[in-house]
Design a binder for these strands. Structure first.
Lengths: 126, 126, 126, 126
DNA sequence: GTGGTCTAGACCACG
DNA sequence: GTGGTCTAGACCACT
């Protein structure tokens, strides 16, 4: 199930994209399997169909899914592979940000690593 | 001094805040010292004065700086400490994001740590 | 026989019409000969019968085929001639499009001709 | 000026894209020059702003234009070059179609060429 | 039933 | 002023 946060700064259609990406990666939706229809998902998420359509459209233009006319949306075959690369790129971005902050604090790599490990442990306990 | 990226997804006012924070942390602006005026900074950064004003307002509401009527903006005394906390909070956010992505890929803590270290080394070489 | 592309931007019913036209022109279906039934063709093409029905309806309204009650669809007698005209009209449409594009590039007739010949040779080699 | 045909089968947002592409190619909009704002163009074309926004969004995702926050849309530097390639690709598609039709009629290359030239002359006289 | 297009109108962030 | 997001609701083509 997908949870949409209405008061998040992240646009709803982006939240849908993120959620679908994760489900595809997790294997919930196998390659060439059918995704929920725009209308179905819109009702389930209590969101306007246009918003879901925008999310699907975006994923289609990225090549992660494709449409069969009159039949709905399907997962692209190599979708999971591409998504994995994208996910890694995402993580790299965040690490870049962390490094930038660390530098402004005058921290070196070893210190950054330590902070990361500490936070990682804290998060994992939850 | 500060470089503003016009086509970054990060709002200009936010870029200004980030930059000022780093300069305060680095000691460029000491506690109770006067910051450049809105107009000066706007001209220097080739940016709309409203944008600089918004950045200063935001920082003032965070308590990092304060205004003296008719005299401009000054750095708050304990500002550096607060900024450090904020910086750590920022880093924590990014790490949270990384963990969230890693989990959607089904990775465990050890694997995440390894990826982080690898990426960290790659970035540091640059 | 006929190949239907499921992910083409061209509607399936249109693909069926195009294919049937070519087969009639090629003499596969002689005048007044019986076409495959809607159900048969639907099964053969792995397509919804409604889609084949739409294609046949469309062709019937163009006069290319006609229905005998309870007996199926038949090729119209002068159909081949009409189809030839239609085919030429189709080609004319495409040429019109090419000219429109060429004009927007500021090319004159001689230049368009040359481009066409070059591309034609390239395609024929395949 | 752009003319929008309301009863054309081509979507309005696509017509806008086509028109803008041609104007960029024709040099009406130079690289890094500002395009009319979404609202302006919407009023001029008597069309809903969302429709213009969709056209602009599409062009941006293709890399033909880019947005400066709060300032409007601008033409990408190498936009004209890319558009030229796209235009040639478009023409190639049409030629492919023509050849496919010609083959179903049993025509050879020389005959196709002749038909093309005849139609080209007819069109140019208009 | 499916998605695609379009309109109208609202609210928001950014400059 | 700029574009971005979202809703509501309509109509259409395709299967």
């Amino acid at each position: 199930m997908i949870r949409i946060s209405d008061d998040s700064p992240i646009p709803i259609y982006q939240q849908i994209i993120d959620a679908m990406r994760r489900e595809i990666l997790a294997g919930v939706f196998a390659p060439d399997s059918r995704l929920p229809s725009i209308r179905e998902l819109a009702i389930e998420l209590k969101v306007n169909p246009n918003t879901v359509a925008k999310a699907y459209q975006e994923m289609a233009s990225e090549g992660a899914i494709y449409f069969k006319r009159g039949q709905g949306a399907y997962v692209t075959a190599q979708s999971a592979d591409d998504l994995l690369k994208q996910a890694k790129a995402e993580m790299a971005k965040h690490i870049l940000e962390i490094i930038a902050i660390a530098r402004s604090l005058g921290l070196n790599g070893a210190q950054v690593k330590k902070i990361f490990e500490t936070l990682l442990e804290q998060q994992e306990e939850k």
